[in-house]
Amino acid sequence: MAGSQAIFGTTPFDGTVAMRGYALNRMCFSFNSAENRETFRADEEAYMRAYGLDEAQAEAIRKRDVLGLLAAGGNVYYLAKFAGILGLDVQDLGAAQTGLTKEAFKARLVAQNDQPETL
């Protein structure tokens, strides 16, 4: 992207990435159902195959690699469903994206919130 800066932990989510991540995001959306979460926990490999994840996506799921899931086309809002299975929340995802601990990420959010708004 011309004129854009790379930001650690981010993958621009455009149409190409959305298409690449469709199977992964579809699978993560399925975790809205408690029954599906249990089915996933019972046999992760079979569940990933049923949704057609590619090897990069499946490996990132196996490793619980949030940045890898983003790079593989995952959308953070859908990945939050997967993170919930692991007992993680959106702040955990934000910490992973920024390379900070969760505590440091939360402190950064508080510090940014304390800054006066400029127009």
Results as ranks from 00 to 15, higher is better:
residue 58 A to E: 12
residue 92 D to H: 13
residue 113 N to F: 14
residue 56 A to S: 12
residue 35 E to T: 06
residue 54 D to S: 04
residue 13 F to T: 02
residue 30 S to G: 12
residue 47 Y to M: 14
residue 54 D to I: 09
residue 38 E to K: 03
residue 46 A to N: 09
residue 94 G to F: 01
residue 51 Y to E: 07
residue 29 F to N: 07
residue 71 A to P: 02
residue 84 G to W: 07
residue 73 G to R: 02
residue 79 L to E: 05
residue 76 V to R: 08
residue 53 L to Y: 03
residue 86 L to T: 03
residue 46 A to Y: 12
residue 72 A to M: 06
residue 72 A to D: 05
residue 76 V to I: 11
residue 89 D to N: 14
residue 38 E to M: 11
residue 103 E to D: 09
residue 3 G to Q: 10
residue 59 E to K: 13
residue 93 L to E: 00
residue 43 D to W: 09
residue 37 R to G: 01
residue 21 G to S: 08
residue 9 G to V: 04
residue 69 L to G: 04
residue 92 D to T: 04
residue 114 D to V: 09
residue 69 L to W: 01
residue 106 K to Y: 08
residue 14 D to K: 07
residue 92 D to Y: 10
residue 78 Y to T: 14
residue 108 R to W: 06
residue 45 E to V: 13
residue 12 P to F: 03
residue 66 V to M: 09
residue 70 L to N: 00
residue 99 G to W: 02
residue 85 I to P: 07
residue 111 A to G: 09
residue 72 A to K: 02
residue 93 L to P: 07
residue 18 A to F: 07
residue 47 Y to D: 12
residue 42 A to C: 02
residue 75 N to M: 13
residue 47 Y to I: 08
residue 33 S to A: 05
residue 18 A to K: 13
residue 25 N to L: 10
residue 65 D to Q: 02
residue 88 L to N: 00
residue 12 P to A: 06
residue 78 Y to I: 04
residue 40 F to R: 03
residue 38 E to L: 14
residue 38 E to Y: 03
residue 68 G to N: 09
residue 106 K to D: 12
residue 83 A to E: 04
residue 62 R to I: 09
residue 82 F to A: 09
residue 12 P to W: 02
residue 5 Q to L: 05
residue 117 E to P: 01
residue 113 N to H: 10
residue 17 V to Q: 15
residue 3 G to H: 07
residue 94 G to C: 00
residue 15 G to K: 14
residue 96 A to D: 00
residue 29 F to Y: 14
residue 119 L to H: 01
residue 98 T to R: 11
residue 80 A to Q: 13
